[in-house]
Each structure stands twice: as structure tokens, then as C-alpha cells.
Amino acid sequence: MALAGQSQPNAARKILIPGDRIPLVPDAAHQSKEGPLKVRVGPGLQQEQGDLVAVKAGVLKQAGGSKYWMDGSQKRYVPAASDPVLGTVTARQGESFRVDIGSAHPAALSILAFEGATRRNRPNLDVGSLVYCRLSVANKDMEPELECVDPATGKAGGYGELKGGFVVKCSLRMARGYVNACSPWNRRLVLITLNYSLLNPKNPIVTILAESISFELAVGLNGRVWINAKSCAEVIAVAKVIQACDGAAASDINKLINHELRRLEDAMDTS
């Protein structure tokens, strides 16, 4: 909960467009301290002569008193370190695989970046196979690098090749989790943002669906979602719900899910 703090709803949540300046008003905690105001700037913002300037459209968010970022939506993925992503292998290149993760440049996945992999015991991935991995290197001047192990434990931890199932695309905002960014006393807002964060296991879309269908889900922050279930009809139902809920108002989500579940029941009856 590093990001959880006293967020100020009035000052911290505001719709901005590129070019808007944000006057930095130091809060009481910072004013009492000596020394210059320290601000951490996240995505969508830039510093310009002591002011913050928005470079993307979205909602300005603030946490921990001094962390600012813009919450907007886009379709194109820009790699960021430690993001979990879904990619397809496009080529084998000696010591590494070339993986398409939807970014401007293809990513490299080393054959040694798998659980228990050695030069002798190398993973066997074919061109076209789907991998769930984590970005270990993401720098604008370098090619992105992937790994299929959790660096803390050295175990696969859910990463690796995904067999079977189906992949659908969704917006980056839907895929991303916002829970850590919201403060505990702002629960109502947390519940609304939860609707959009598929990565969160308590996500209402996932929880409501799980009551009637058993399925597996792997969410990549590059806007790709892998779904697997016992029957094709169930996979299609989950895929349709995810695509319908993307960008839908929070109040419509229950209706959309129920509509899709009813269609699934009808399909099951006729077959």
C-alpha cells in the first residue's frame, strides 16, 4: 500500500487536456517541513519551470501528498518495467525469442528467463505460441526484454506458455488495476474504479461471471486478455462480457453480464 495516502478529492481529481498547467500547492504536511517541495511525476505529466503540465488528456490523480499522474485511456501499449503482458512468439533467434507485445518494438524473451531453464534444458516455444510474461527491461531507447519467472522467487509464478483458450483485446485502462492508488477511506471510489481493473481478483466483472461459469483468465497490461474454459460457448460468453464492459458505464455492467449469461443458457439448452 505504498501509494495509499490522503488524497484530496477536490484538488487531486480533475479533467485536464494537454497544455493545462497544474499549480502545485504544497499541503500542510509539506509546508511544515523545511526545504524544497518534492513531487514525484507519473505518466502523462511533465515538469516545466516549477509547474506541472499535462501532456495527455485524462483525470489528474494525486496520492501520498506528492505523487501526481494522469489517468487516461489509450489503445497502444507503451512498455513499462514489471508489467505483466501477453505476447505471441514471432521468431526464434538463437538465445532468445522475439515476442510481439503490441508495442512499437518487438520484445526479446531470453531462453534462460524461464523457471529451471539452463543451456541444456531450454524451453520449446514454437512461432505463434502465446506467452504470459513480465517486462524486465523497458526503456524508450532499448528493446523491451521479457522474463517468464518471478525475480523474487525464481519460480514461474503463473508466467509461461498459455495453451488452448482464446485471446481478446481490451483498452489499457480496463486491463490496469487502480486499487493501490485509492486511499482506504475512499472506498466508494475504489468500487467504481474496480469495475475497470481486470487484474484485480475482486473485480465485479470477474466475480459475477465466476458465480455461473468456471474459467481461467490471464490479463496482460498491454490490453490482451486470455480466457480458457471447459466449453467454447463459455469462452465466447466471457470474451463477449469483457468486450462489452470495456468503456461501459459502471451502472450498466450488471445488465451486460446478465444479458450475456442468459444468451449462454439459451445456447446450452438448444445444444
Binding site: 483525470v59 467504481i192 468503456g247 459502471a250
Partner: peptide, 18 residues
Amino acid sequence: RSSVEGKVRREHGPEADA
């Protein structure tokens, strides 16, 4: 401004103005 704000408001729901 109004068109971009409208789009952000649609995507974020009531949270945008909170």
C-alpha cells in the same frame, strides 16, 4: 476542451467529477 472532457467523463463515470 469540451469534447475531450466529455470523452474522459464517459470513460471514468462519476469518478471523474468526484
